[in-house]
């Protein structure tokens, strides 16, 4: 414990720092919008906001104050969990974003799990046999990793919903409605993770400790499960934090196509309407989720690799 606590404290401090910087960047980025910031909050130059509305927004956001005062005021609001109010929807951003978080998290976590399973399956299968399996495995991975979400989603809908009629083209809220969105997110990620796993699996299978294990009479299955797969999973684990982030980014497309409620769709709507408070709110909550996920993958790495626990 004595060793764990300071490290944990350092990690948490780092996380808080990143969040603070994210808030800072978004705050000043919004100030880059040309023209009156109140106008920007009200939907940009194209919107026809009344002077009264502009004045009200100016006062509400403190645009009449010096920038530095505004900055600290915003930080203060963030610390109390106040993410502002959506202009377009006229509701508080905090509760809105939180209500959308669950759906996206479910989607992302399921996709991450499925991607891991697919990647493991392809990697182990393609390193087992001869050259043909290796070629096929490697090609599958490259093509899968190159599939754009929006095209994969459309193709899946054409085949499974329109062609075969077995799965709903838009989310229905039940499990059947989850299948296509999760597949859409998982397949490209599986291709990406699979490439990494296969490379490191091949390295592990060629290493002297595997030769030692074989010389002790370990079977091929044993060599993989006891030794090689553990080594092969390490780089994929440490990339899972990044992968999770890319899944949330992918949710923007997937939730839009499958008409699923969630952070991604909320974000896209807000971007289209230039609903700045909602955009900032989503960005902040994604940053929090991403940071938590990196902390998790860090812990998972330490679980699998005892060497990390030593130093």
């Amino acid at each position: 414990m004595a060793v764990v606590l300071p490290r944990l404290a350092a990690r948490l401090a780092g996380a808080v720092f990143v969040l603070w910087m994210v808030a800072t960047i978004t705050f000043f980025a919004v100030r880059l919008i040309p023209g009156d910031p109140a106008q920007a909050v009200l939907g940009g130059p194209g919107s026809q906001a009344s002077p009264e509305a502009l004045a009200a927004v100016s006062v509400e956001y403190g645009f009449d104050q010096p920038v530095i005062v505004q900055y600290f005021a915003q930080l203060g609001r963030l610390m109390t969990g106040d993410l502002g109010r959506s202009y377009a929807l006229n509701i508080d951003v905090g509760p809105l974003v939180l209500s959308q978080l669950g759906g996206t998290l479910l989607l992302a976590v399921l996709a991450l799990v499925l991607a891991w399973l697919l990647a493991l399956a392809v990697a182990t299968w393609s390193t087992r046999g001869g050259k043909v399996a290796a070629r096929v495995g490697s090609s599958l991975e490259i093509v899968a990793a190159a599939l754009p979400h929006f095209w994969l989603a459309t193709s899946l809908i054409v085949v499974f919903s329109i062609g075969l009629g077995v799965l709903p083209p838009i989310s229905t809220g039940d499990i059947a409605g989850l299948v296509l969105p999760v597949l859409t997110l998982a397949v490209p990620l599986a291709g990406f993770l699979g490439q990494i796993m296969r490379e490191s699996l091949l390295v592990a299978l060629e290493s002297p400790f595997v030769l030692s294990a074989r010389a002790r009479g370990e079977s091929e299955r044993g060599v993989r499960w006891v030794h090689a797969l553990r080594h092969a999973s390490l780089p994929a684990i440490s990339l899972s934090g990044w992968a999770f982030g890319s899944l949330i980014s992918g949710a923007v497309v997937v939730e839009t196509i499958f008409a699923r409620p969630g952070l991604g769709r909320t974000l896209l709507t807000a971007v289209t309407l230039r609903d700045i408070p909602v955009v900032i709110g989503v960005v902040m909550i994604v940053a929090v989720a991403y940071i938590l996920m990196t902390l998790l993958t860090d812990a998972a790495s330490r679980l699998v690799d005892p060497r990390l626990r030593l130093s």
Binding site: V18, I33, F244, G245, S249, R274, V286, Y290
Partner: peptide, 24 residues
């Protein structure tokens, strides 16, 4: 490095979307 770490907290297209909100 810290700056990059912060940018990584805008995963994938999020940074792009933020940029588009600002510049249209």
């Amino acid at each position: 490095n810290r700056f990059l770490e912060v940018l990584f907290a805008f995963p994938g297209l999020l940074l792009a979307l933020l940029f588009i909100v600002i510049f249209g």
